[in-house]
Design a binder for these strands. Sequence first.
DNA 1: CTGAAAGCGCTTACAG
DNA 2: CTGAAAGCGCTTACAG
Lengths: 340, 340
Amino acid sequence: MVTFKDVAKEAGVSPATVSYALRGGEHVSKHTMDKVTAAARKLGYVANPSARSLRRGRTNVIDIVVHELDVPYFYSRLSDVASDVIREAGYQAVVVKTGMDPNNVSAAVSSISNQYCDGVILNPSGLPAQEIKRLSVNRPVVLLDEAHDRPVLDTVMTPNEEGIAAATRHLIERGCHDLLFIGGGRDELDRYAEGSRDTGPARTHAFRETVLDAGLPCDDARLITAGWWTEPGLEAAHRIVDSGLTCDGVVCATDSLALGLIRGFADRGVRVPDDVRVIGFDGISVGRWTVPTISTVEVDMTDLARKAVDMLVSRIEGTYDGEPRRQTAAFRLVERESSR
Amino acid sequence: MVTFKDVAKEAGVSPATVSYALRGGEHVSKHTMDKVTAAARKLGYVANPSARSLRRGRTNVIDIVVHELDVPYFYSRLSDVASDVIREAGYQAVVVKTGMDPNNVSAAVSSISNQYCDGVILNPSGLPAQEIKRLSVNRPVVLLDEAHDRPVLDTVMTPNEEGIAAATRHLIERGCHDLLFIGGGRDELDRYAEGSRDTGPARTHAFRETVLDAGLPCDDARLITAGWWTEPGLEAAHRIVDSGLTCDGVVCATDSLALGLIRGFADRGVRVPDDVRVIGFDGISVGRWTVPTISTVEVDMTDLARKAVDMLVSRIEGTYDGEPRRQTAAFRLVERESSR
DNA sequence: CTGAAAGCGCTTACAG
DNA sequence: CTGAAAGCGCTTACAG
């Protein structure tokens, strides 16, 4: 392996000079600079990141930690966009899949505390914020959609209430008066989150309030508790049709649920939007390509990522050191075929 | 920050003993061991990965480098599965999105050479293998689907020929005799790849051979050159219908193309599979949920990842040091509604 | 079983 | 403008 000492020897200067020259050339004459860069190129020198970060106390890396990278596509979109935003902020982005589940705390530990990074953006996956704070060992963390009463760590929220309210109003404006809501169940990952106010119930609550505000009835039978992703949506569709429950519009807590629901309706010959209008939440990319295309509350992922990265960077660089903050991402209602 | 010296002081032993104790306890008595672990826990000690890897010359990290993390879902599935396989192999997996394009070689450089890792699994994104080899600076690399005549680096292939042949045969068995192929175009990212035999043309070629083998005609008008992902599929559908080209089956070079194609057909009132049968290639997860569900050549991603990781680990650990190898992943033909 | 010491490859005040 | 030297936090032969 070629180190900066080799470069120094090749260029005929001291190791210190190599360091100065290679990082922009402060305190170094043009001539020396050229000698050094030529030598470095000739030898194919690449700095050792471990040595550099050990010395500087900084890695210049920000981790994005999620428990899934493929389905649901929400996390793939988040990881994709956040990677770009992190790079723009001058850091190197790295995505880590934990497969984190609250039963496997050691996986959680190593994915939070054991990392080569300056800070992490973390999907808590049901792990309590207090626990995450303990594990993070002074490394700044920004949490995603953690709805505990008082934030324990900096947090970015998806626009749960406002978004679902907008979706619900949209279906009402389209003429629906017999609405169903699907979602709001605790994820199996949420079992650790006792005592925290989840985002699931928050979405359910927003639906209910909006329906009642519109002067429409909203008994509990219209609130169908389901998990977060595709399969429960499909099952819900089957159950709805098989039980004879009537409706002319369904608000889904996620686009994945909407995808599964539409698929499940198709199994039973129910057509969307002809027989039932459907809208989701998240803005996963595939909603633009399905038949029908899926109306959604599209979370402004760039906004979400920027808010997360700004909070994180301010802590990494020490420009903020106060109380935990909570910010909410913007959204945009996207009308597509499923609610037309 | 708490270091192992603090732990040593707290436990009343030497720093060296802390190190031995914390990593399994060789050369350490049970009693000392307990003292040290207790002290470490009490102080919340976490080893500094930079220091450790600098000293040991190993990071124990394997990078997965792709240029997209969201759409197309092929890479999100790859990253997801490979992360698990890497962890099983005893390494920490890290996913890096380059947004790599051949015009921005500096991004490529930093994403390949500048990394805190022992080796990388890399989607070459049209960058020539020779160039990648030069940039990798002795760090082992496994390439994904690089079809140069002679492998320059270890490579895992998707089953281009066998897979497309199987897909084509499947449609023929279903009774199609008027087949179209979509794909095989060079990606805009491929412009650097002059002189290499791409996977795109390989898929086109396999389609053609299979059709001819079946005694069916296959003039060039039936080979519709298109890019790799969704949008070109949608445009192709429009063009096919608008130009009056007839067909009863379409083999798509990727599932994303199939997704776009089906969507584009829907725009024109063409129904799948009633009017045209369609099959894709890749096995992206969303194909299970669309209407219609999408038949596909599902690449055995676990197999692909295992082959990649095995080759990589053998080079990292020095158990193999020979010529570059090339292996091909297994696949499975999955019949769904789109070809029924 | 335990400790003192060297060294991994960098960066950065400090002298000159 | 350039160099000698210390030190970041670990691990690991080597003595004892």
